[in-house]
Design a protein around this nucleic acid. Sequence first.
DNA 1: TTGTAGGCGTTATCAG
DNA 2: CTGATAACGCCTACAA
Lengths: 325, 325
Amino acid sequence: MQKVTIATVARRAGVSRQTVSNVINTPDVVREETRERVREAIEELGYRVNQAARQMRTGRSRLIAVRIEPARDGINGSVLDRFLHGLTDAAGLAGYRVMLYTAGGDADEIATYDELLNAYDLDAFVLTSTHHGDPRTSWLAARDVPFVTFGRPWGAPDTHSWVDVDNAAGTAAATSHLLSAGHRRIGFLGWPAGSGVGDARREGWHRAAGLSALSATSSDGVEPGAAAAKSLLSRPEAPTALVCASDSLALGALQAARELGRDCAVVGFDDTAVAQAIGLTSVSQPLAEAAARCMGLLTELLDGRAPSLPTTVLLPPSLVVRQTA
Amino acid sequence: MQKVTIATVARRAGVSRQTVSNVINTPDVVREETRERVREAIEELGYRVNQAARQMRTGRSRLIAVRIEPARDGINGSVLDRFLHGLTDAAGLAGYRVMLYTAGGDADEIATYDELLNAYDLDAFVLTSTHHGDPRTSWLAARDVPFVTFGRPWGAPDTHSWVDVDNAAGTAAATSHLLSAGHRRIGFLGWPAGSGVGDARREGWHRAAGLSALSATSSDGVEPGAAAAKSLLSRPEAPTALVCASDSLALGALQAARELGRDCAVVGFDDTAVAQAIGLTSVSQPLAEAAARCMGLLTELLDGRAPSLPTTVLLPPSLVVRQTA
DNA sequence: TTGTAGGCGTTATCAG
DNA sequence: CTGATAACGCCTACAA
């Protein structure tokens, strides 16, 4: 099977190479009849535009890059993977492909940008896990590289487009659910202040639960969560329900309650595999939609019809009610 | 910042473009001194080979493709993600990049191969989730497309290179561990016969546990696993320990034992986040190593120094002992 | 509406 | 060992 180029198609359809190119890139400029004939030839020959050649001419690769992270504590790591899947789907629909890379830290990641940009002419980046003082966004912005972030620019002005999930709304919904189930003392188990995501999750609970409610903080993980929950449940006026900043913490809370022989409703966050497996009520992020919206913003950027102001998208999470609350 | 091409470097180093190319691709053909001068120029200018141009010349893209699957039941889905991460790492080290795609089924996936091959000149594919009568391998083989599979060719002869984890050894190790802990009636909770992976996991247990041992099958999942475990534990001569084909099943078994008020040791498979979270003893697959070996086989294939016979790699899993066994 | 003439950055070929 | 030349497949002018 010989390689099929634009010339092969042209010969088959009895037109010039240029006409074939027009049919592909600017169809409306070609007469209906000719267009049809060319399309048939393309079909019959199974012709596909060669990206490398196109890229060399246009300087665009139709490739976008995303970093794949190691599955950190494993329990919450799957969030990124579901996002990745959604992004690959959405990119494919828009005629783009997703390229993966790994990086050890921000500096390492920036070096990778440089390489990817120079060697592969990447069209855009999707950044995840944004954090306070993130150097990646400013690097990209300084070079006019198109990008969107999944996660808002914590502590920085909105100088670029982003998509995020309304974390506060998630914990607020969880708290409301507990309130309407009759709970009156609803506690919060979260991370130490300073992480944007963690603070937002606390704030949503705080708003809905009222001032008198108890809270505790611990680093993420089942063990630390159990310890913190235990101290919370041992106080006078102990909460009868706990909203947690992650499924890991929620699992810890569940263990603490069991060990103490206490009945305590628990809600987690992220609706991970663990939550599904053990019947933990949890706040679920709309990851496929988030990915699709990221891709949508990106195509706007790449097609040049970018709005003058950066677009921001805040998606509401949903509560998945199971046995624990 | 102007675009830096091979010509820029050539001018800076005071040599011809070709010499620069030689320094990059066949260094030993250039005189030491010249080579050094060119290398300095490359360094100073931050020059990077343009993949698109190189690809056009050589027909090779230094890109390999992997399918990303939706996180099926979620609980076991993370296995593929860890593999993906390892592969991205290994590929980067070997100078390759990983491109992602999704597909609804085998036919859909084959159509994607065709597109990826034509449009992006992909160098190779890594297939996961091989199964009986897999049409993908024969399609690729018929077109001489380099590929390796993570998962052996079930029920077919070894006509291509593959990497797999020795599933039977994993369950055998789990069983031995239980035996040395004093258990004498060790049961197995697995999937219905027919899936290569499931059959291998059963066989390893069977070999180590002996003929008299009990087993039950159910589809994967916590609920089905609990039901099957319950019936197993209700029989006379019920097992005192259960080896399971997955962490989902193991979790079900744990629930069943608790509901029945029975003490039963349980071992899962895959060492997923759930196992880590709840302290489930589980068989762990060396996914990073599997990915690295896949990449190793691939580079052999791509560098033309492919052995005449396909290479097969069988990796031993390891048992992660936690509280449940 | 269609055809013709470069050139994108590399590398292979072949002469010096 | 080094340097000139052509070609990979496509797209953007420009001319017909």
